[in-house]
Design a protein around this nucleic acid. Sequence first.
DNA 1: CAACTATATCGATGAATGTCAATCTGTGTG
DNA 2: CACACAGATTGACATTCATCGATATAGTTG
Lengths: 116, 116
Amino acid sequence: MNSLQTVEPALDAACCAPSARPVLSAEDARQKALVFKALADPNRLRLLSIVKGEASGESCVCDLTEPLDLGQPTVSHHLKILVDAGLLHREKRGTWAYYSLVPGAMEKTAGLLASL
Amino acid sequence: MNSLQTVEPALDAACCAPSARPVLSAEDARQKALVFKALADPNRLRLLSIVKGEASGESCVCDLTEPLDLGQPTVSHHLKILVDAGLLHREKRGTWAYYSLVPGAMEKTAGLLASL
DNA sequence: CAACTATATCGATGAATGTCAATCTGTGTG
DNA sequence: CACACAGATTGACATTCATCGATATAGTTG
């Protein structure tokens, strides 16, 4: 990080104006990136798609494992990531675990893009 | 493959209905995940934020390296990923390279979430 | 209580990724 | 032409991540 030259450009014009503007803070960026990280996997997108497409609004793991052609532990792992990201809600009823979209989560995520 | 069991549990129904629904295809998912992958890094979010906040609508690399406290090759690498994802536009003028938001790219990305 | 089933967790492994130092490629300037 | 500078590319390295097999946990059935 100390590889900056001490000599000034000495050119007639700087390449552009200084950015003395409120930029996304490192912490904000880290937080927002977590949500996009959760979306940055094809299988997780498909999981969301299946849950969203379910008429009842929820799906159990047994319904999510087959169409993705993934092992059950892997699907469980992806679901945990989506829950941690605040995109999915998990409710256990009896032996089964039901996953549903968190209301407004998608819209909120879309809003993150607009508020960068 | 074992969609139905020979023994019906005492519960009201099987864990859930079969998902005979048009689910996001593997290829579609892979494609959409690429954009979110580009957004899944805090420093890339900050780069977008800086470019977006620039009054002129564009920033050069020299303006992007310092606020992120990253080396120049690293910033260049991140910018390439954002360009490849269709989020940023690159234009070289003289010695400098100027990056600007691709018009409508953010809105289009937000739309991806709604159309899962 | 014992067997079974659905789901979660753990440990390992190979692949992808972020970062940097060094180098290469243009482009402007003496 | 020779040099300096902006930016891209390359290679290496450490970290993260997706996946799987094995196992643990919890609820259900007999």
